[in-house]
């Protein structure tokens, strides 16, 4: 008789092609256009800062896992993605030690200490950004830059939202295409929306969080912005600051957003309200980062109350 033994395992015996690696890579691809525009606008320092960020995150993850005798997971690209997201949230001309500290904080303190990928309670890149904002407030809010002398030449460094808060008028067209001051990756609403649509089309993220987030903020601004139904003011809020980057790429981070479909809708609404509160009634002109990391903390609670109902539940039993 045939004495060959075959592999056995529980069903199913086939697997989908998507892997953690392919998903992370897709998100990185979606972020690249906005990153490239940031590099083009902001110049060499932006490029170098981005590279330092990504490298620090990968090295920090490798070092931690190496010294903790854990499986090395840098090939899943999640550390690289964290690095890229952090870089996109940094002003272009920060000194080079800033991305190093930020990268180490993001990977070690926010991610690995809690158990690594999937276990962190807060978005690592945003956690690090907020840590840097508090620790190096001056450096982190200085948006002046030299650039390559590319597509435009404003170098004063006031972000559109800060200008808006100060009651100045802003150039909506420049905001939409990304030719304004800001962090490396947040300026171009257009490219970020395109990246987000790519992720939705590839079914990496669902529409729920970004749509609910942006929609709620729009309603909030109309109701409480103090400008009535002013389309220009509304559009400035939509395209300004980190909203598009936050809504499509940071709030939708799998690990720190609700896993349940209903929970994602609630999460988006909470984000919209918080961002509106911070932007309009808060001291700073920005609100996206704090809104997201605060809402991250609510995720377990949201999930608890939005657990899906099992199929056929409520029918006859026994």
């Amino acid at each position: 008789m045939n004495e060959q033994f075959y592999n056995v395992s529980a069903n199913p015996h086939v697997r989908d092609k998507a892997t953690t690696h392919s998903i992370m890579l897709d998100v990185i691809i979606a972020l690249l256009p906005a990153t490239f525009l940031g590099w083009w606008n902001f110049g060499w320092k932006a490029i170098i800062n981005t590279i330092i960020c990504v490298a620090t995150c990968i090295i920090a993850e490798y070092a931690w896992q190496h010294f903790m005798h854990k499986k090395i997971t840098i090939m899943d690209c999640s550390a690289a993605l964290t690095g890229l997201l952090l870089a996109m949230n940094l002003p272009p001309e920060v000194p080079f030690f800033i991305p190093v500290i930020g990268g180490i904080f993001a990977i070690i303190v926010v991610k690995q200490i809690f158990g690594g990928l999937g276990q962190n309670f807060m978005n690592p890149a945003l956690g690090a950004r907020c840590f840097l904002l508090i620790s190096y407030a001056g450096l982190m809010t200085n948006f002046s830059y030299k650039g390559f002398g590319g597509s435009f030449d404003a170098t004063t460094g006031a972000t559109p939202l800060a200008a808006l808060k100060a009651g100045e008028t802003v150039n909506l067209r420049a905001m939409f295409f990304g030719n304004t001051a800001g962090t490396i990756g947040e300026t171009s609403a257009l490219l970020l929306i395109l990246g987000g649509l790519y992720l939705i089309a590839r079914k990496i993220i669902s529409w729920r969080i970004p749509v609910c987030y942006i929609g709620t903020l729009a309603v909030f601004v109309l109701l409480f912005g103090g400008h009535g139904f002013d389309v220009n003011y509304l559009a400035a809020h939509m395209f300004g600051g980190g909203l598009m980057l936050g809504a499509f790429f940071m709030a939708t981070d799998y690990v720190t957003s609700p896993i349940t479909p209903k929970g994602q809708i609630i999460f988006g609404i909470i984000l919209g309200i918080l961002t509106g509160l911070f932007r309009i009634f808060g001291g700073s002109s920005e609100g996206v980062s704090y809104a997201i990391i605060f809402s991250n903390l609510l995720v377990p609670l949201i999930e608890r109350y939005t657990t899906p109902v099992a199929f056929g539940k409520g029918g006859k039993k026994e």
Partner: peptide, 23 residues
């Protein structure tokens, strides 16, 4: 295919919830 795939940490993508026919 099963042996070729090493399990790793859950990334909480929620795909299993989306496809579960039992909800």
């Amino acid at each position: 295919e099963v042996r070729a795939c090493e399990p790793s940490n859950c990334i909480r993508c929620g795909r299993c919830i989306e496809v579960c026919p039992a909800g």
